[in-house]
Nucleic acid binder design. Structure first.
Lengths: 244, 244
DNA sequence: TTAATAGTGTCTTTCAGACAGTATATT
DNA sequence: AATATACTGTCTGAAAGACACTATTAA
């Protein structure tokens, strides 16, 4: 990969290397609203953007992290104590000015998880970690670095992909009803879906299996389902129609 | 982004940084076949993978490259002399073992271009640059690093996206007929599409405009079209149906 | 006039939207 | 029995597949 005029060994040894970080956008649903996780940066006077809210993340540690994805999983474990059921790379942002410490590239992953699994773990330095509603962007705090732009892209990608994939299943506990699942979709998309078409779509692809338990308590019991192959993503042949 | 126990300044200064590279997957169509561009790595004895075929790319140069994307554009200019009409980030691959020189992260972009615009520019060191047909994977040379895997992902992404976007327009010269465009789609997808449905789809979204010229020469003249907003990508509401 | 390519029309199929109707539990 | 929620059926509509048909040029 070095240009032919460079000696590779020299280039690898001497070329100035950008900073290399990983950030994670964590989505969940609480109280029928899509939320994402932000953490407060420490206040130390050597810190850039002290006290600002930011995506959970940090430097790749070449000694501990086998790969970018492993690094994302570590950051996530440190903040939420959870091994993500689904982790997708959103993209990379790298340029000379996004971080005052120098040319830096961040590698962003996103994940979805049921909120009741999560116990937020404040970092050793009394960092806060908090859920913020995705809508109500006006009321977000100012974000560190270019994280606002990154979050916007993540939300865009999530919404686009929910139109034709099984992504919202990862917002739910292992067993759920079709109504739960539909509410998951509707919460992410921010619009109602038609019940009959929704159920036909979900059951026409063989990715759910009924568990032999029903959800009871509220009037007529409902069939509980679970995902056949957790970790995989299912693609539907069309997007939901946009409403008129 | 550093862990709270670390001083940011110290971390930025002392943490060992991964190598940071950019690679580009360049697609084109020649003789009704999808091709991609590979370059031969130099033979110098300090070079890893000497003489192997690889994606065009190389180290990010923090002094010259304003961003990852700018770096991709530079690599491309050096190899093909072309400013890409479309450039999309495919993803990043970073781990401890993919490059013998150390922990490295590569940032991969892909692009499509009409092949007649391109004059391959061998590097100063008599590197070769060559087009390879995407099918006939068996007859590819062994690729350097993890580039085979990356190429496979790029092809997958391209084919998936062609099902519901206007991507193949970037394989064509600025003015083209609907038949040309259909052939572009068919070449990428490797299967025939139905003419009537294809034309209806293309014209139902307002992204093409007729130029007041016809393609003549071969029997009945055909209307030439151009893309209304070059650089943009159009999304169609459905994928083409998979054939039975 | 024929060959070859450009372009249209018609019928079927697939699947989502709309919405009404039936089913089964709790109270 | 009333009610709330679970689930199904039927009709419509949008866009793709299949394929036949018409249109316009060069030779």
């Amino acid at each position: 990969m070095p240009r032919s005029s460079e000696s590779a060994a020299r280039a690898a040894a001497t070329i100035q290397r950008p900073l290399c970080t990983v950030d994670v956008v964590v989505f969940t649903v609480r109280e029928d609203q899509l939320h994402l996780l932000l953490v407060r940066r420490p206040e130390g006077r050597d810190e850039p953007q002290p006290g600002r809210w930011a995506l959970p993340g940090g430097f790749v540690d070449v000694a501990r992290d086998a790969s970018l994805e492993a690094c994302a999983e570590r950051k996530l474990r440190e903040k939420t104590g959870v091994v993500p059921p689904y982790l997708e790379q959103l993209g990379s942002w790298g340029d000379a000015t996004r971080d005052p410490r120098g040319w830096s590239a961040t590698h962003v992953y996103f994940t979805l998880m049921p909120s009741d699994e999560i116990e937020l773990q404040p970092g050793g330095n009394a960092e806060e970690a908090r859920w913020w509603p995705v809508d109500a962007e006006k009321r977000w705090p100012p974000l560190a670095f270019d994280h606002r732009r990154i979050v916007q892209q993540a939300v865009e990608r999530l919404r686009a992909k929910v139109e034709y994939t099984s992504l919202p299943a990862y917002l739910l506990p292992p067993a759920f009803t079709l109504t739960d699942l539909q509410r998951g979709y509707e919460t992410v998309l921010g619009r109602p879906l038609e019940k009959s078409a929704f159920r036909t779509r979900m059951l026409s692809v063989d990715w759910l299996e009924p568990v032999d338990r029903m959800r009871t308590g509220n009037f007529r019991p409902a069939q509980l389902y679970r995902v056949r192959r957790p970790g995989e993503l299912v693609f539907f042949p069309r997007t939901f129609y946009a409403p008129k």
